[in-house]
């Protein structure tokens, strides 16, 4: 089934490694829904979290092709694993004074934070899994969204449980 699936790619922290991976996705026609790149616990390793809409054979093909790149250390497929998934979103809305209270209440429900108030604008920060952020953004459609940015999904597998 074609659904959004997420893999983490641990790569050597080398020049062009991002180009190698994004180029491979483009060349082989795999799509990237979301991409986040960051440092890790090791200085030499970077971590890319890539979400893609794919069926299982395509995802397996992606994982295998990515694994072949010399700079790739490890590919983790998070499908069917117990994970913690987070995304950060900043949304600048244009609201008049009358709408502010309503927006703040909405933020509270979603545990969002107001991080900036400008002349006629309010910026909200929200952290959560992708579904939660999608839901929040949908609700905000009633307001005028001036600018929005999302960090892309990051994922870690949960720790082992006690027997």
């Amino acid at each position: 089934m074609e659904i959004e699936r997420t893999i983490s790619v641990l790569v050597k922290n080398r020049p062009r490694v991002l180009a190698r991976i994004s180029g491979l996705f483009a060349r082989r026609g795999f799509n990237i829904d979301s991409l986040a790149v960051s440092t890790t616990e090791s200085e030499e390793i970077s971590r890319m979290t890539i979400s893609t809409t794919a069926d299982p054979p395509t995802l397996s093909q992606i994982a295998k092709q990515v694994s072949k790149l010399h700079d790739v250390v490890k590919v983790i497929d998070h499908t069917n694993r117990r994970t913690v998934e987070r995304e950060l979103c900043l949304i600048k809305t244009s609201v008049d004074r009358g709408q502010r209270g309503e927006l703040i209440a909405l933020c509270d429900v979603f545990r969002g934070d107001i991080v900036d108030i400008g002349n006629g604008t309010v910026m909200v920060q929200l952290i959560g899994d992708t579904d939660k952020i999608d839901a929040f953004v949908e609700l905000l459609a009633d307001y005028d969204i001036v600018e929005m940015v999302r960090s892309g999904k990051i994922v870690l597998d949960r720790g082992a449980q006690k027997e």
């Binding site: 020049p15 062009r16 180009a19 190698r20 180029g23 491979l24 060349r27 790149l69 010399h70 700079d71």
Partner: peptide, 17 residues
Amino acid sequence: VTGITIPITKHNYLVKE
């Protein structure tokens, strides 16, 4: 050249760092 040949080499190196 390393950029140009990424998709047509198994691997490539620019010995710069």
